[in-house]
Design a protein around this nucleic acid. Sequence first.
DNA 1: TGTCAATCGTTGATATGTCAATCATTCTGT
DNA 2: ACAGAATGATTGACATATCAACGATTGACA
Lengths: 148, 148
Amino acid sequence: MENGFHMLLYRAFHAQRACLRPWRTGLGLGPGQPKLIDYLARSGPCSQRQLASYFEIDPAAVCRMLDSLEKGGFVVRRAGPNDRRTGVVELTDKGRSASQAWQSACREMERQMLRGFSAQEAAQFADYLRRARENLRGPKAPAREGML
Amino acid sequence: MENGFHMLLYRAFHAQRACLRPWRTGLGLGPGQPKLIDYLARSGPCSQRQLASYFEIDPAAVCRMLDSLEKGGFVVRRAGPNDRRTGVVELTDKGRSASQAWQSACREMERQMLRGFSAQEAAQFADYLRRARENLRGPKAPAREGML
DNA sequence: TGTCAATCGTTGATATGTCAATCATTCTGT
DNA sequence: ACAGAATGATTGACATATCAACGATTGACA
């Protein structure tokens, strides 16, 4: 069980979240909020739809996290220029500094996580993670076609 | 950003959950419930405390998931023999078959995830995941000591 | 023995993620 | 131009994870 990749990924992901939690709470952010302001800092203002698509989460979750972020003064919602359905989410100055602090925290976490990894191993690790994700994403249920 | 390990792990973990979701819902289980019955099937009856410790989640979460699992007929809670605080959680027959189906689903997912991986690559991948987790778990914030 | 600390399970509050449904707006096809 | 489909954002409902607090029980120690 401990050897199944399901558990291995669970453990690694869990440890990563636990490692980043002190930084996150120090910034006054909820569990899912850092990734939103990080994306906004890198890509500039965008719609809620774009945030939901990028992170593959429900637009409802984005909506509520932005409610909280807006109340905290990290982002503002503006009206879109062309389409009155689509608004634009933008970082405030406070949001920008929080995103910078978060990026530092992520680099710190990464350094800690990769201790003892050679540069080649780290690159291989990243490659494995990308391939695993791609394999899981593509076909819906490619199993039991041939034999089984 | 797409290259940071934070995002890479997020993507892989996310894809894995999405891949396993149809099987999970087919069994009538909530998102966190499969791991509990899987553990119970492998390790036999145990306390709620043990489940919480093993998966590193709050005992409150375990308590509520077991409420749901018990209502669904997957597990039963019995009184402990020695300590009247500590109960014992046990799989029912329905819980046992669900756990077997879940283990099949996990093997299937793993096959799909590792498509194109050689046996050596898969072993290396598992090793990287274990090392990353251990690195994140041990020291709290050992960074920026030497030179950054 | 008697008091205090620690432990197990539980409940409440809050945040996230999924699903379903709704409202307003925009697009499509005729 | 108009009816219906599609889209963006929102809200409600449910399950989960974290934090805080509580009741019951057990253990430790004077």
